[in-house]
Amino acid sequence: MATTQAGIARRPDEAGLTPLLEVEDLRVEFRTRDGVAKAVNGVSYTLHEGETLAVLGESGSGKSVTAQAIMGILDSPPGFVTGGSVRFRGQDLLALPDDERRAYRGRSISMIFQDALSALNPVFPVGWQIAEMFRVHEGMSKKDARKRAVDLMEQVRIPAARERVGDYPHQFSGGMRQRIMIAMAIALDPDVLIADEPTTALDVTVQAQIMQLLADLQRERNMGLILITHDLGVVADVADKIEVMYSGRIMEEAPVHDIYASPAHPYTKGLLESIPRVDLKGQELSAIKGLPPNLTNIPAGCEFRPRCPYAREICKEQRPPLAEVVPGRFSACHFAQEVLEGDIEPAQQ
């Protein structure tokens, strides 16, 4: 498949070092009674130490499923990884037996989830849940582990951590719960932290605090951070690189500032235009028309064609591979160059 080759060809590592995490041509499908839903269709991306990668896409674009496949926490059945590899420091995690794979979870790669209230176990104290990391992975004593849990709670700036270590998740506010989730995830100093919509369930003011905390922790610990979100506004300040996903595939990859200045894919362009902006106050907000494709029956040709304002004949027949447009920028569009330069007219409907 064209995507694959593009995926491999475009990634000579600049420093010549093995990247922290390499996802290559990853494929995931869900086998349900309504058919097979192809949730992830050949996703490739690379993450380096200290780098923040934002994965952007709407619900059902496959961004969370990709992360779950990397962690090895897909609900299976119905979810199955059907192809590709996930290499952590060169080691393909998908090829490891369950037992060895487990050793990477939480220690090398860890994850925080969108809804901390449901992601934390309601019947155990938060301190106990953080301490569990030390007790299980490092065989630490109950007392020492608890002390470390308090330290971590202080690091994620939970006030009165020592008094609150025995409290239960429901006794905390949404923002504090997410901090606990973060404390648990960074407990063993992982190299990669995956944050799946970490601020979606929170108030706007709290969102900024949590993003700041994540950014600080990432800098202090030189972690690779994968930030999954549907909110372009969230990533602008913290991300280095953006992957835009649609229908289980990467549509565009670019350094964060380039993408805001000049998107190279109609989908990214649509996303950017649908953000309310102060300087365009009073103008009609544009939205992407239509709905994402049904993953059990992805149409031939370009996945985005039915919703694309620039769609031409060729888009019906050929699926555009992810290809380099200008150095460091990739787009899966037949007219990437034209979109990038703003040199294309909407098709006549």
Partner: peptide, 8 residues
């Protein structure tokens, strides 16, 4: 997020 809800 579940892909099966895209049932049209």
């Amino acid at each position: 997020e579940a892909p099966e809800t895209t049932e049209t």
